[in-house]
Nucleic acid binder design. Structure first.
Lengths: 163, 163
DNA sequence: AATTTATGTCAATAATACTGACCTATCTTT
DNA sequence: AAAGATAGGTCAGTATTATTGACATAAATT
């Protein structure tokens, strides 16, 4: 009488039923999002490897190219990482000549970040396969659906507290 | 005459113009996807912290719950990681009683993976905030747009070679 | 019997991230 | 002008997730 099968047994029974739309949760789209992002970020990896950079460098190069003159604080806020994490990556990009720092004209404590010509080229090269993938995913989609996808992605972001 | 401003100068000129739709590349949607995914995966972090688990554990628990009886090889293929990477995470989940292994009934080399009751509960708890976020992002979207978003996400995946 | 396959394990390493502490330069407030 | 706050940099230590390479075992296939 020592063998239990209830919740306090040493070996709880394994469940054989797939987890499906329990409680109105759409597991399919959760997975679709995972797979989509996994493959989306894998595109630039081959290009990055040539420069000895990783995905963190990609993100920095991208946002500095999109917002030239942004400060280090701006970048930290965008990436939601700590300055110690950013430091290594940013230093390597500056040392390699992809990004330049300029002291802020008003506030000289600030370091305004700008891409160099090769920084711009790198950002474009990295965006290119991602853009092609997106275009492929949109094939046959109406303008309404395209706008709907963008609205969906916007809606997935955290709401900011004080904007 | 020693100071150069051309491409071979030591300090290439920084570019001040934002990178915009160069070459028909839609940078906005690339960013939207980045922000959306960043916040999407951040939801379960608070829950995972309580169990001392990370995002890797989340993915394993999710897929085992979705496909009970899947083998280790299936899981490696889904996650696209090495078995050494999986080993630590899977071991912790088994030791903590969230996942069980059963030798394959036909091929006894295989280890079929099943969630326990608490494994199922964990997977549901992790999916719940993500599902709420998705529902919020879909607010006001037509059925056509909802289907369009799913089709878009499916289209973002790599095409398999041999299926 | 030999080989392949599924899985597990040991060791070393890399990339990205974290916390905590401390420093300089510069701007703001008193 | 002195005190304090802010922007940024740096040093040290640690955690998580991932990698490659090598080797081991059990069970299936040839």
């Amino acid at each position: 009488m020592s063998r239990q099968t209830g919740p306090k047994a040493g070996k709880p029974e394994p469940l054989a039923t797939p987890m499906e739309d329990t409680g109105g949760i759409d597991f399919e789209i959760i997975e679709l999002f995972f797979f989509a992002y996994r493959d989306f970020v894998s595109d630039p990896d081959a290009i990055l490897e040539k420069s000895g950079f990783g995905r963190a460098h990609h993100r920095v190069v991208h946002f500095v190219n999109r917002n030239p003159g942004m400060t280090v604080a701006d970048l930290l806020d965008t990436l939601k990482i700590t300055k110690q994490s950013l430091a290594r990556v940013l230093k390597q990009l500056i040392d390699s000549g992809y990004i330049r720092q300029v002291a802020g004209p008003e506030d000289r404590r600030q370091r305004k970040l700008y891409p160099t010509k090769s920084g711009r080229e790198l950002a474009l090269a990295l965006a290119e396969p991602q853009s092609r993938r997106i275009e492929r995913a949109f094939e046959g989609a109406s303008a309404q659906v395209r706008e709907g996808v963008k609205a969906f992605l916007r809606g997935m972001r955290d709401r900011k507290k004080a904007d």
